[in-house]
Amino acid sequence: MHQVIVSPQHKKYVAVRPGSRGGMQLPREKYVEVRETVSAGSPLPAWFIDATKKVWGLRLDSGSASNTVLVRPETALNYSRATWEINKGCNFACDMCVVWQRPFAGLPMGEKIRLLEMVRDTGVLWFQFTGGEPTIDPDFIESYRTAYDMGMMVEVLTNGSRLDHGPTLETLTDLPPHKVTVSLYGASAETFEALTRTRGAYRRVLRGLRAATAAGLPLELSLIVTEHNAHEVDSMRALADSLTSRTRYSPICLRLTTVTEAHSTSRQPSTSTGKRCSADVPPDTASTTWTRSAAQLCARSDARTPSIS
């Protein structure tokens, strides 16, 4: 299984590592050198071995590169990013969302593979699974493995409720994603379940987050701040900080004009309006803080990341 991906990214060439934030920019001649080395099954160049050790602490030997480095080809379209809503369906019924009101829908597995092949052939390196809730899709694991094996840096955008599911956790551990981004809706069961309108949601998400943390997954929490949970922002921050060092804040102001029972099983929508804003929430909750990812580093011309010359 590959440990490093070498790929075009728009007008640049990069080396990235699944599950890691670090990355390298390469001049095209170095990209071509690695590509030809891997294609021929020849020993890795010494400069590449030294660079991967410096950036990721890897100890690649000088043997065949075919089992450790996956090289993505140049493509005519040369896209670099894509997001895929793998399904229309969710196991939560969040007040500000309409997805759960729709019938569950998604492509059959054969068409999912065909779509992933199309995405790969356009050059996409950074690929995000979302939904709906992607982890409840019956084909999520196979789709994830396929994207990973194609040499994509995968992100999973999830509510976190299925991260402790055995096959899902095993897959994400064995084939580490670029990151797993989880939305957090409160710091107490009462608030969390009132907003998601799903009994047991808070307990299930905490269980999933703790399993992901214990497994060492690259976890990022997105704190969804609304009028409904703004009073818990400090507690939400503390909870997030206890689980990961990567947290971002997404203020959404919801003007709720009707009240829906927190544990309603009918999942009838309330008449609410939502808009992103920084008003009516505690100070600083509209700010966004996170460490630069490899994607951001490689996309910026002034990125502070190793550049091979």
Rank of each mutant, 00 (worst) to 15 (best):
Y13C: 07
Y144S: 03
T288L: 13
P177E: 11
S266T: 15
P18H: 01
C298E: 11
L172Q: 04
T130G: 04
R248P: 07
I49Q: 09
A303K: 00
A230Q: 09
T273M: 14
P8I: 09
H2C: 11
L297G: 10
S66W: 14
D139F: 02
P282W: 09
P138T: 04
P218N: 11
D241E: 14
A211S: 03
M109V: 13
G160C: 02
A189E: 08
P43S: 08
I5N: 06
T158V: 02
V233Y: 11
R21K: 14
E220D: 13
V32L: 15
S293Y: 05
V6C: 04
S307N: 15
L116H: 00
D95T: 14
T265A: 15
L115E: 05
R197C: 06
D95R: 15
D302M: 11
A214T: 10
I308P: 08
F129T: 02
F140E: 05
L172G: 00
A211M: 02
T198C: 02
E111H: 09
Y144F: 01
K12Q: 14
P103G: 08
G41A: 06
E227W: 10
D241I: 08
V38P: 00
R292T: 14
G274T: 12
G22P: 01
S64V: 01
D137A: 06
T68S: 10
Y144N: 05
A15F: 03
C94H: 00
P43Y: 09
P45T: 04
L221H: 00
S183E: 08
C298W: 09
